[in-house]
């Protein structure tokens, strides 16, 4: 058979920053958070940057896409929190995911939860979410300075299956059982309502957001949904060091 030449990330695994704490694979319970608002916005980005910043374990999406998520929970075991993260759209094998390049949260307990449960390298920041009559707004502030200011405007309701937003699961770089790995965020979503709007970006400090090279270009679309969020035990990991064509997702090993 003819041997294929594939397109995948060029980044050396050793240059990928791992979460500050290793993944705790032991939890098996699902945490359900009611009425979580999720602002999810996609932009196209230059393919050269995506290839440069994705590790060899991942294929890029075509076109290259940057996804930004702001998640606001009013009720949780950690109290109210807002979590923001961004990632580059990618594939392992043929499945759509986002390789996370930055994550932020103002609630220390929640930040710790997402770090040890899902491998997100969550940094402390003031993260806010607000839905008003004409827009949905998310912001990340560090030391009083806005590093991300994002809205969706001119919003339209989505109905039926159109309201079921297809979130690409984040992949976060962390240590699993002592080894560097990409771990898939494991969540389920019971949608209550969704709207779609035009992205409007008024602040984006790429370096402060985790990767100076990763910048949005053409806006695609944004959505805001209210869901009951099911945070489930991690199930899948991707070997960070294995090139994409030989890698793929495998089940997380639990002791």
């Amino acid at each position: 058979m003819n041997a294929p030449v594939l397109l995948y990330g060029n980044r050396a695994p050793s240059t990928v920053t791992l979460a500050a704490e290793p993944l705790d694979v032991s939890p098996q319970e699902t945490l359900v958070l009611p009425d979580v608002a999720i602002l999810y916005v996609l932009f196209e980005m230059p393919m050269t940057v995506a290839l440069e910043r994705l590790p060899v374990a991942l294929h890029p999406s075509i076109p290259a896409v940057l996804g930004i998520t702001v998640m606001h929970a009013k009720e949780s075991p950690f109290g109210e929190f807002t979590l923001a993260y961004q990632g580059i759209a990618c594939r392992t094998g043929i499945k759509p995911r986002h390789f996370i390049t930055g994550a932020f949260c103002g609630n220390a307990q929640a930040a710790h939860y997402f770090t040890v449960r899902y491998g997100l390298d969550v940094r402390a920041a003031e993260v806010s979410y607000l839905e008003t009559y004409d827009r949905v707004h998310g912001e990340v502030r560090v030391d009083g300075r806005s590093i991300l200011d994002l809205s969706i405007v001119e919003c339209l309701p989505l109905v039926g299956n159109g309201a079921l937003i297809k979130y690409s699961p984040p992949l976060a770089a962390t240590r699993v059982n002592g080894e560097p790995a990409l771990v898939q965020f494991e969540a389920g979503y019971d949608f209550k309502r969704s709207i779609r709007g035009r992205p409007q970006l008024t602040a984006f400090d790429a370096a402060a957001l985790g990767d100076a090279a990763v910048k949005p270009a053409t806006p695609i679309a944004g959505s805001n949904s209210v869901v009951d969020l099911h945070l489930m035990p991690v199930r899948f990991q991707v070997d960070l060091t294995t090139p994409a064509e030989a890698g793929g997702a495998k089940k997380v090993t639990r002791p």
């Binding site: 999406s61 075509i62 094998g93 995911r97 079921l164 297809k166």
Partner: peptide, 28 residues
Amino acid sequence: GQTIEVSEAYPANNYTAIGLLSSLRPDP
């Protein structure tokens, strides 16, 4: 798998189903 279906990027009421490409793609 390299392509981005409309339903993955641009939520819309006229693109609610996965198409040919996803028919061969495993459930994410």
